[in-house]
Design a protein around this nucleic acid. Structure first.
Lengths: 162, 162
DNA sequence: TTTGACGTTGACGCCGACGTCAGGTCCTAC
DNA sequence: GTAGGACCTGACGTCGGCGTCAACGTCAAA
């Protein structure tokens, strides 16, 4: 398979694939003329990379997980890495839930206009006293797994502060 | 309240507050000497902004929501905006869940080393056949709301492709 | 009145996952 | 053999939310 086909099957650009190779995340054979040739498994590999990127893992981290992905053998550091990232993702989901709740409150207020709007906006979740001790479970909402627009499907998450 | 106090109470830098003002997200009075003075409500405002940022809303979008936040009156466009962002967040959470599941599979495999590792890694979720029709509900995991490191609390999510 | 913590504007830097040219090469169908 | 689509390398651009330095002004306590 050449680069174009891998790209269209995995839903990424050819530029992205060259970038992955540059970062050591993806390898390829070459034809006599120097063109990249990939095995079928490359498509799955790219999809995994995309998923990890979408969860905010930087390429360096994904790179450090690659030996584990390839061999199925987990070094203890790779293991710790995975656990840490897992926790980061969970924390991020908590943040997202909070943000979505904030939006919900805004939508709610915007929906039925009442003079006493502001208090309701302030009320829960982002408390004025610093403690962030809400035992907020990720609500078991059915997540409406409808047909999402494909170009929105690969939204990412990243940016650590400080 | 001056800028330093708002910053420490809201858990952001003073640079961030000046940036918010520059973007029109936050306003302030000035003392005779030109120093910024904020009302108490600014702290809550900043926290809301941070939450929306953490959910991947760009400052321009937050800006377009500001009149709605201030007046409690929802223009139809602001309403549509909020609904769209809400949906984007939900989709993002689905992606995060998928990524976390992928990590879980990797962890699982790394944990108990067996020669036939690769098939298990490939099996579910990121299917080789293009259809992404898993009716994947966000699992009702208790989310372990333990004491997260505060400097990790404001991880963000962004980056739309294409 | 002094001092030193806190504030101001302005400007440049950063990072990461690519987009996007430019100028050339390869491959294959006709 | 040739057209034209796919591919190559290299290089610079982008975007957003700040960090960070410089050079300077304010303000309250001692």
């Amino acid at each position: 398979m050449r680069i174009g086909e891998v790209a269209s099957r995995a839903g990424v650009s050819t530029r992205a694939l060259r970038y992955y190779e540059e970062q050591g995340l993806l390898t390829s054979e070459r034809t006599g003329g120097g063109q990249r040739v990939y095995p079928d498994s490359a498509v799955e590999r790219v999809r995994l990379i995309q998923q990890l990127f979408a969860a905010g893992l930087p390429s360096r981290t994904v790179l450090r997980l690659m030996p584990c992905i390839e061999t199925g053998q987990g070094s203890p550091e790779a293991f710790a890495l995975m656990a840490a990232e897992r926790e980061r993702i969970t924390a991020l989901m908590t943040d997202l839930t909070a943000a979505r709740d904030a939006l919900d409150r805004m939508i709610d207020i915007a929906n039925h206009p009442t003079p006493e709007h502001c208090p309701a906006l302030r009320e829960p979740a982002w408390s004025p006293y610093d403690g962030a001790a809400e035992a907020a479970g990720v609500d078991p909402q059915p997540v409406e797994a409808g047909p999402r627009a494909p170009e929105l499907a690969l939204a990412g998450a990243g940016r650590r502060t400080r």
